[in-house]
């Protein structure tokens, strides 16, 4: 927007933005000072004192090692990677199938089918917890990686379908009709045409659902024991019984955030596109 503002307004604008930015950075700066300290230094000195500059990399490395190995965040990090990959890729793929069918194949009342699936997104997750726990128990899938991965996958589908369906509307229907008249099977036109053409939607869905699954606390808390996802593991380490020293806990928390940071940065382009995708007519 090229509206000219008076100079004193601009000063005010800068003041507001800078004050806000300082508040926003405050926790991050304080955590940055924390992770370069050894636990012993953290306990012995005031919060804002810093160790010798040469000692910082060593402390950070040791905190990292302790968080990954001793506190077993590395292990739950790996678990979460499995869950988030399966949920991200799986929900994107299944939704691309369904999205294709809903928009470009002949199905009775596609809108009702869509709403049947999408309504799942409207319930708070707490609604599903107890029955899912009972189901997994009955199927002998409780406390397995597969079980939790399938749950995450299922939870991810409604929103994934929402994105895919919107994207599918942007593709001309005649195109697929023509392909089928030319003798392509439904699967063929999905596999050769629809799926490659909707790669941006795939990326958006993957990005969203990877992040959601990675950040989930609740399902991990109730549905896992040995194969805890990383946020549940962090919650445990910060809880009442935990005695993990604070610099190690915070280092672990930061490492646990790296995948979402990376996914967000690498896919920011798609991510922003994703939002326009879901709001565009």
């Amino acid at each position: 927007m090229n509206i000219k503002m008076k100079a004193h307004y601009m000063v005010l604008v800068y003041v507001i933005l800078i004050v806000l930015a300082v508040v926003w950075m405050f926790p991050l700066v304080s955590m940055a000072t924390l992770i370069v300290k050894s636990p012993a230094e953290f306990n012995a000195f005031p919060f804002w004192s810093l160790p010798e500059i040469q000692a910082m990399p060593g402390n950070l490395a040791e905190n990292f090692r302790a968080a990954m190995v001793d506190a077993e965040i590395g292990y739950s990090f790996f678990n979460s990677l499995i869950y988030a990959m399966i949920a991200g890729v799986g929900s994107a793929f299944l939704s691309s199938l369904a999205g294709f069918a809903l928009v470009h194949l002949r199905i009775r009342a596609p809108q009702s089918w869509f709403m049947t699936i999408f309504i799942g997104n409207m319930f708070p997750f707490q609604m599903f917890l107890i029955p899912l726990y009972l189901f997994l128990n009955a199927l002998y899938l409780y406390d397995t990686r597969l079980g939790l991965a399938l749950v995450y996958l299922g939870i991810c589908i409604p929103f994934a379908l929402f994105v895919y369906r919107n994207y599918a509307f942007t593709l001309p229907r005649d195109f697929f009709d023509a392909a089928m008249v030319d003798g392509a099977s439904k699967w063929g036109s999905f596999y050769r045409l629809f799926f490659p053409m909707t790669i941006p939607a795939f990326a958006v869905v993957f990005c969203f659902q990877f992040m959601w699954t990675w950040n989930d606390l609740l399902f991990g808390l109730i549905l896992s024991e040995r194969y805890r996802p990383v946020m549940t593991a962090l919650m445990r380490l910060s809880g009442a019984r935990a005695t993990v020293p604070e610099p190690i806990l915070v280092t672990g928390a930061i490492v646990a955030s790296l995948p979402t940071v990376i996914v967000l940065l690498v896919m920011l382009k798609f991510f922003v596109r994703g939002f326009t995708l879901v709001t565009e007519k």
């Binding site: 009972l134 128990n137 808390l221 024991e225």
Partner: peptide, 21 residues
């Protein structure tokens, strides 16, 4: 041994106690 989330330990055990698990 399995160490449970203290917070759900009791409910987990209670549910399981009624089953062959």
């Amino acid at each position: 041994p399995t160490d449970y989330e203290t917070e759900i330990y009791a409910s987990r055990v209670k549910i399981d106690l009624t089953t062959p698990r």
